[in-house]
Design a protein around this nucleic acid. Sequence first.
DNA 1: GTGAAAGCGCTAACAG
DNA 2: CTGTTAGCGCTTTCAC
Lengths: 346, 346
Amino acid sequence: MSRFNKATIKDVAEKAGVSISTVSRMLSGNYPIGDQTRQNILNAISETNYQPNVLARSLKSGRTKMIGVVVANMANRFFMQLARGIETFVEPLEYNLIISSTYNDRKKEERVLSMLTERAVDAIVLASSIDDPKCLEKIVTRNTPLILIERRVPGIQADMVLEDNYASGYKLMKLVTDNGHRRIAFVNGIESHPTTKENFAGFKSALDEKNIEIDRRYIIKGDLDKTKAYEGIKKLFKTLPKEEWPTAVASMSGLMTESTMHALRELNLRIPEDVSVVSYGELSSDLISPRITSIKQDANRMGKKAAELVLERLEEVEKDVTNRHYREILFGTEIVIGESIKRING
Amino acid sequence: MSRFNKATIKDVAEKAGVSISTVSRMLSGNYPIGDQTRQNILNAISETNYQPNVLARSLKSGRTKMIGVVVANMANRFFMQLARGIETFVEPLEYNLIISSTYNDRKKEERVLSMLTERAVDAIVLASSIDDPKCLEKIVTRNTPLILIERRVPGIQADMVLEDNYASGYKLMKLVTDNGHRRIAFVNGIESHPTTKENFAGFKSALDEKNIEIDRRYIIKGDLDKTKAYEGIKKLFKTLPKEEWPTAVASMSGLMTESTMHALRELNLRIPEDVSVVSYGELSSDLISPRITSIKQDANRMGKKAAELVLERLEEVEKDVTNRHYREILFGTEIVIGESIKRING
DNA sequence: GTGAAAGCGCTAACAG
DNA sequence: CTGTTAGCGCTTTCAC
């Protein structure tokens, strides 16, 4: 009995009257074992309640069967569906997930990633939002597979699972402009992100088609942050004279859309009668009314894909494949039509 | 360089021209080290990009600094707020969370718990719903602190973090009966759970006060399952003649309440005009209308408390305290008044 | 088929 | 103050 208060392979070996290597071999399953010996060992295992110590195994094998999942906020629906997608895919293979939140704080992200590499996780799925190529480089050079979700980092040796932000942005905004809107506010994501830029570019191309100029006063720096989005909307409507109010708001994340709705509600503005709203990313419940026309982000699908990539890469690591070819998975998106866009006279 | 593709303590020692124990000591911080030596080691560390291998450390120390968190479904808001509560509390102490879902499946729960003990997590926080004392016994005898959330398992050597289900149930139901309702349907949780029973007992005592008999046909076996709740409601209203329809529905979880709302919506029944609804546990968004009168479950608070207990117990384990005294934390709950109860003529 | 022994990376006596 | 050494529990040659 170890100080973990549990039987070790040694206890089993003694009880079964064999050597620890024999027990180890039986456990691994790839060796011929005498029938009697096998039986003895099995008995010993059940008598001692033996469970192999994964720690020791990992130390030896170099594989921990743990996958680090880094998200901005684990209380957020999108991220947890992502994690769930990963989990369902890898759980049967006995992988466990270490999930950590960064709250979009660079320092915290650095700490979290460092903890994960110290723990020697087999792979990292990163869905957090900070740009920190230096930090990411480290992971890559350690030979730990890295999968980025909804986040493009140019030149990095990692797989990326993305959605077609450009096309999605275009589709969404076109619905708005086709309905005659010209004064449109944006609750923006994190501006430095390529994905945000693509999204915005998609918006812009729909606006260009109608020769609509973007009014910079209408761009709210939301940073994927609940409060910032809320306050941004409040401020926008309180600052501008009524005739300059935007007739529509496009928000770049479901979370920020909900903040927007809260703010509008408090401003006594109805959707879509007073302000139209569209959202990149769904809201947390489809019972919310009015239903917001939005781009559906399939977090679960992304999670599964990420898990698939993880396993693929791990096999390569196993086989010492050197000449890897990193992939960029681009998912198309679906648009969900709600009742949140009012037709107005252009 | 190890096969983890990273520097080990040995590399650092060589580079700094000292022995590995000196490095180890410096890292632990509790030993006097010569100034020059310290500097050499620090340089070596940064040159080699050394990160201690937590695995090896754990194998030696018997502590992994990992906490297992077992929930029914990690995509569920309640559970993730719980996890988040735990995380915020233990993250500064460098603990990581391994989160797994059981989907309320006994086999899966068993597997998950077994994986966690194999990984030698320092403690387990269990917020999943299956009763499996045998399985839990094993954890306890391994000397791994176990914290149960919203789940009472009599006689077990574990801490429990609970809400006052009885009082909450009573308060909630009283609001319903005070408004004149007598035909009340229940979307029940998992019947075998003590917490569900307490909740129900609370309901019952409010009913008793008004001499209302419980009609067994009105009890829907929801089992905390989205679909079961949805179908249960559908069936109830479709089976019964209109004059026997319940005038109110009390649901035992936020998730099931949302299913109830979906079902009612499809049945073209309005809340509260046609049916009143109350909920034990909040919905996933406060933008949902009508706002449902509900018991607010503070998952975050429970998470923090659980984490606090974990750390407390871990200290005891450290200090080899034998005569432990397990605690049962009972939180009071808050009721959120919505617009989901109609006053009717008793 | 089975056993002995080395070693994964680290900590903690035990020496000096 | 610093070095040597014995494991933590397991896998994996290398023997027999």
